[in-house]
Amino acid sequence: MELRQLEYFVAVAETRSFTRAAERVHISQSGVSAQIRQLERELGAELFDRSARAARLTAAGRAALGPARAALAAAGAVGRAVEEVTGLVRGRLTVGMVAGCTLTPLFEALAAFHAAHPGVAVELLEDGSDRLLDRVRDGSLDLALAGTATAAPEGLEAMTVVSEPIVAAVPPGHPLAARGRIRLRDLDGLPVACMPAGTGLRAVFDEACAARGARPAVVVQAGAADALADLAARGLGVAVLTASMAERHRDRLTALPIADATAPALLALVWRSPASPAVREALRCCRRAFAVEPRPAPAG
């Protein structure tokens, strides 16, 4: 008795047709018929009543169907168990990262993953956040660190690693510099330096402005926070940054909280579900590196 014979038997039982079963298992009808005849000889009983137009199970066939399905399920489980192991012995993990974003914990996590699973090649690519999310969705990336405006990007699983308010950063002597905080409308009529569309920070800023009816003029765009800070320090625009980005330039810029921009800019690890063994292991390393507690399993 062979697994393929059981597979053909279940296919005929479920489709009630030798022809449709052959299409399902991608062999000829005569091949299916021959293998089931062989199975019937080995079992000593006919499994189908062939006198009707549809292939109907005999009493022996009905008795055999449950165990046949269980045998196929068990064989599949064996294959998956081996795949769980070999997937972490050899293979490839492709990780995306926001261009210009240097987060030491991510590199520490990837180093820990590589040390534990040296047979898995790790590939790290940079791109804009929107494109990273799309590439995780289409499967060309296994995992990505991307800026987002929401904690759960559509169609993806996510683990937030950074959540910060956005601020306006200006040099000393700027008209806004003496204020303790500002509102979005205070930026109307002023040149603004911000990250380009497609980034998480820009999405948060644009959504906040739309909600408050503010219309600042984004006249300078750059994908790197340091570039925005340099431009702002030279008076080319009010830089819209996260609090930690601005903090790195506190010697030349004043960070002003934006009172009515309440939604934080998020940086999250995103992946598709179900996650592969390599992605699950990489996420475990990331949780340790970023000190993120695993989410509890949903009740029920």
Rank of each mutant, 00 (worst) to 15 (best):
E2V: 03
R4Q: 05
V10T: 13
T15S: 13
R16T: 14
F18N: 05
S28I: 05
S28V: 08
S30F: 03
Q38S: 14
T58K: 03
A59Y: 06
A59K: 07
A60I: 12
G66P: 07
L72D: 11
L72F: 10
L72A: 04
A73T: 03
G76F: 05
E84I: 08
R90G: 13
G91R: 15
R92A: 11
T94H: 12
T104P: 02
P105E: 06
V122W: 07
L125T: 01
D134T: 11
L143K: 00
E164H: 09
V167R: 00
A168N: 11
A178S: 15
R179E: 13
G180T: 05
G180N: 00
R185K: 05
D188S: 12
L190C: 08
L190P: 00
A193Q: 07
G198C: 13
G198N: 12
G200F: 01
L201Q: 12
L201E: 12
R202N: 11
A203L: 10
F205W: 12
D206N: 00
G213N: 02
P216S: 11
V218A: 13
A224V: 15
A225W: 02
L228R: 07
L231H: 12
A232K: 14
A232H: 07
A239D: 04
T242A: 09
M245F: 09
R248S: 05
R250Q: 06
R250N: 04
L267K: 02
L267M: 05
W271F: 04
R272S: 12
S273P: 01
P274D: 11
P277N: 07
L283Y: 06
R288G: 08
A291V: 13
E293D: 14
P296Q: 03
P298N: 04
P298V: 04
G300F: 07
